[in-house]
Simulated scan of single mutants.
Amino acid sequence: MSGSSRVIAGRFRLGELLGTGGSASVYAAVDGRTGLGIALKVLHPHLSERPAAREAFLAEARRAQPLRHPHIVGVLGVGVDHDGEAPVAWIALERAAGSSLSQHVARNGPLTPAHAVAVIDGVLRALEAAHAIGLIHRDVSPSNVMVVPDASGALASDGVRLLDFGLADATGTAAIGTDDLLSVDAKGRAGVMGNVNYMSPEQVRGMPVDARGDVYQAGALLHFALTGRPPFPCQTTGQTLRAHLEAPPPLPSASDGSIPRGLDRVVVRAMLKDPADRFPSGAAMRAAVA
């Protein structure tokens, strides 16, 4: 897909490519109706041509559309552009400032405990708002958390926003997969799949996922923020999946002895295999972090 010369749905003029994944690409864009700069998520062409994939992509965004919260990148609209040779499914999103947590850590290294606590506080506040309307994110990972340092370079909770509810769904819906993809099987059934490094055990098994699945992922995210590594950095996808199912939760302090043991305890409880043993909610985890 070309850049600034392309207009989607007669209103969104595409700019630079912001990122791409297994199912979609995200572009900077200008909304011709409002003049506002936004982010436009466009389903890859081979998936946009398939009705089941288009509907899965758009249905997830529609569920997230009511969410308006200071720590969440909002969904502004969804649709399908039928003006070209093939349909193009799109989701218009608020344009978040800053960089992703994964980019920030790649540039600057692991966060200090204080900065990691600030980031996870913002993420958990976002999850509380989503869970309050029965929405589970299911892809809480460093690439889906935007951070904006203040003038001194410090990270505060106010500068944290959770984005991409593309895997979000109503409470209890199963999520199956091994990579950050949206798939359609031979019978045309669509399914969303999360980031293998941050999947909860129940998500790996294809079981229903509730708020405690997001708690598991928040624990894995906190581990990454503190250490710069995912909790189970294995060589293969299969090994990582088995680790989520079988390996004990990792201790961040094993990578850096200066990390407080209290944060070890938070990560371990959040990442216990049985959802019943974890923090029951994002609010409960946030209280423990505080």
Rank of each mutant, 00 (worst) to 15 (best):
L226E: 05
M271W: 09
Q65N: 05
A92H: 07
A126V: 07
S100Q: 01
P113G: 06
S48A: 12
R138H: 14
A218E: 08
R11T: 03
P249G: 11
Y27L: 02
G109T: 01
G109W: 05
L43S: 11
L43Q: 12
A126N: 11
A254E: 15
P45Y: 00
I136Y: 09
G172V: 07
Y198A: 01
V78P: 08
Q239H: 11
P45E: 07
L40V: 10
G98N: 03
V289I: 12
S48W: 00
V42K: 03
V75Y: 11
V267A: 06
L245I: 11
P66N: 09
H69M: 06
A284E: 06
H82Q: 11
S281P: 12
V266T: 06
N197Q: 13
P110S: 08
L127A: 04
S157E: 15
P66Y: 08
L36T: 12
V42W: 00
A61L: 05
D81E: 09
R205Q: 15
Y27K: 00
T173G: 11
A61C: 08
V30F: 07
V123F: 06
V196D: 14
S23M: 13
I136T: 12
G228H: 04
M207D: 15
L101M: 07
A170P: 13
P70D: 13
R54V: 06
A290M: 12
D150L: 05
M207P: 06
P110R: 07
E16L: 05
R242E: 15
S258P: 10
S258K: 09
D256I: 00
S253D: 12
S281R: 00
E55G: 07
G213F: 04
A86Y: 09
L167V: 07
P260E: 09
A24D: 13
P248Y: 04
V117E: 14
M146W: 12
M146S: 09
L167I: 03
D83E: 15
A168V: 06
L93H: 13
G122M: 09
G77S: 11
L181P: 00
R68L: 12
G98H: 03
P149C: 02
